[in-house]
């Protein structure tokens, strides 16, 4: 009788372990190659860990390449986008959560529509519309485009967080003479801080990862974001695997930090939404 649960537990742990290995292996390999010195790269190609490690690739990438510039550009673009979107989406999410108004149905429909149609459709027209405004090859242009792309989802996310806060709090504040906006700013926003953090994290990660529009809109090195820089590096110096992977590891850092901050919250937030819905 005792043997069966034991075997089941063992199988369960092994299955979890298999998933963890599958999830981590590509990242482990990225790190491994980035730490392998060039002279061992091919002779010890399939070994799990090189006999000697070095930080040469990282040193080169940080000191002698444009990657610090790309990193800075991406940080500016993703950071600004996250701030703009969170500010805009907390306002619109609040409107959808707290007000019943005539155009609400249409606003929701419009936002859902933007989630359905292929964004790649917009690559050509956005390029054509932004270039006379001087917004191609500029970080500002990217921030504007990414902000618009992320606002609908962030609005729904913020709306669900506001829905979780009882309305009585604002009613009480309004009886004490506060306007709705004061109640929103001073009572509701502080209570939604974890939700705001999650939204910032989501949008930052999305903007940090975006590739196609950045490729289309940016052509020079000056305004290149990390994905654009890495891809042009790959097509130019496709033999220097160590350096490419060192750059790849660098691109991973901010996204992973954000992810670890929000991941626990992720399932909780979705569970709450599912229970209510």
């Amino acid at each position: 009788m005792r043997a069966r649960p034991l075997i089941l537990t063992l199988a369960h742990r092994l299955a979890i372990l298999a998933y963890i290995l599958f999830a981590l292996f590509p990242l482990f390999w990225l790190l491994k190659v980035s730490l392998t010195p060039n002279d061992l790269l091919y002779s010890e190609g399939v070994r799990m860990w090189p006999s000697r490690t070095s930080f040469d690739h990282f040193r080169f990438v940080i000191a002698h390449s444009d990657f610090p510039l790309f990193f800075r550009n991406s940080l500016i673009v993703a950071g600004s986008t996250a701030l703009v979107v969170t500010a805009v989406a907390s306002l619109s999410g609040y409107a959808l959560s707290r007000f019943a108004f005539r155009a609400k149905y249409w606003i929701v429909a419009l936002m859902l529509l933007t989630q359905m149609f292929p964004l790649v459709m917009l690559v050509a027209p956005i390029f054509r519309l932004l270039s006379p405004l001087g917004l191609t090859n500029s970080l500002t242009g990217l921030v504007i485009v990414y902000s618009a792309f992320n606002v609908p989802f962030a609005t729904f996310l913020m709306q669900s967080f506001f829905d979780g806060i009882p309305k009585d709090l604002e009613e009480a504040a309004k009886i004490d003479g506060a306007t709705q906006f004061m109640a929103f700013r001073q009572i509701i926003l502080p209570l939604t801080l974890p939700g705001i953090a999650a939204t910032v994290g989501f949008v930052f990660t999305a903007a940090w990862s975006e590739l196609l529009f950045a490729l289309m809109l940016i052509s020079g090195n000056e305004a290149a974001t990390f994905p654009v820089g890495l891809l042009s590096f790959v097509s130019k110096f496709s033999v220097d695997f160590g350096q490419m992977m060192a750059a790849g590891v660098l691109a991973l850092i901010p996204a992973c930090i954000f992810f670890f901050l929000i991941q626990r919250y992720l399932v909780q937030g979705l569970t709450a939404g599912a229970v209510k819905g």
């Binding site: 590509p26 990242l27 590739l211 890495l230 490419m244 790849g248 991973l252 996204a255 992810f259 991941q263």
Partner: peptide, 18 residues
Amino acid sequence: QALVFLPWAVPTFLTGLN
């Protein structure tokens, strides 16, 4: 949970290159 969900945080361009 944190480890198996990690791939989702990896930017897609890096997933492709990797």
